Simulated scan of single mutants.
Amino acid sequence: MSEQLSREQREEALEAAIAGYIRDGYQVTYRSATGATVAKGKPINHTLHLILTIATCTVWSFVWIALAIMAAAQNATYVLSVDAYGNVQAAKQ
């Protein structure tokens, strides 16, 4: 069994994992010494789509629904954590 790492070594392992996610287009939304949350995707401007839906007598609602479904499929959020041995785990939210 391997030995436990120091806090600095664990932070370095987490930082390396975060760097990989950033290269893949993710943004860090939360960061601590032993964990982070990274997210990818663009938010939908629901206010704009509501105005368009009202202005077009609900015709725009079909576009809005389609965009919301596609955005949900493309967006991803992961919670990263590092244990005492430097292993980084990623859990999809």
Rank of each mutant, 00 (worst) to 15 (best):
M1P: 06
M1W: 05
S2V: 13
S2Y: 07
S2D: 10
E3A: 14
E3K: 11
S6Y: 07
S6N: 02
E11S: 08
E12Q: 12
L14G: 05
L14R: 04
E15F: 07
E15P: 02
A16M: 09
A17W: 06
A19V: 07
G20V: 06
Y21T: 10
I22S: 10
I22N: 09
R23P: 02
Y26D: 08
Y26V: 13
Q27A: 15
V28H: 06
T29R: 09
Y30L: 10
S32C: 00
A33I: 01
V38H: 09
A39H: 08
K40Y: 15
K40D: 04
K42I: 04
K42W: 12
P43W: 05
N45L: 03
T47W: 04
L48M: 11
L48E: 04
H49T: 09
H49F: 09
I54C: 04
A55Y: 07
T56N: 03
W60F: 12
W60V: 05
F62K: 01
F62A: 13
W64L: 04
A66F: 02
L67P: 03
L67E: 09
L67S: 03
I69K: 11
M70D: 06
M70R: 12
A72V: 05
A73R: 15
T77H: 02
Y78I: 11
Y78E: 05
L80A: 10
A84R: 14
Y85K: 11
G86N: 00
V88S: 00
V88W: 01
A91M: 12
A91W: 02
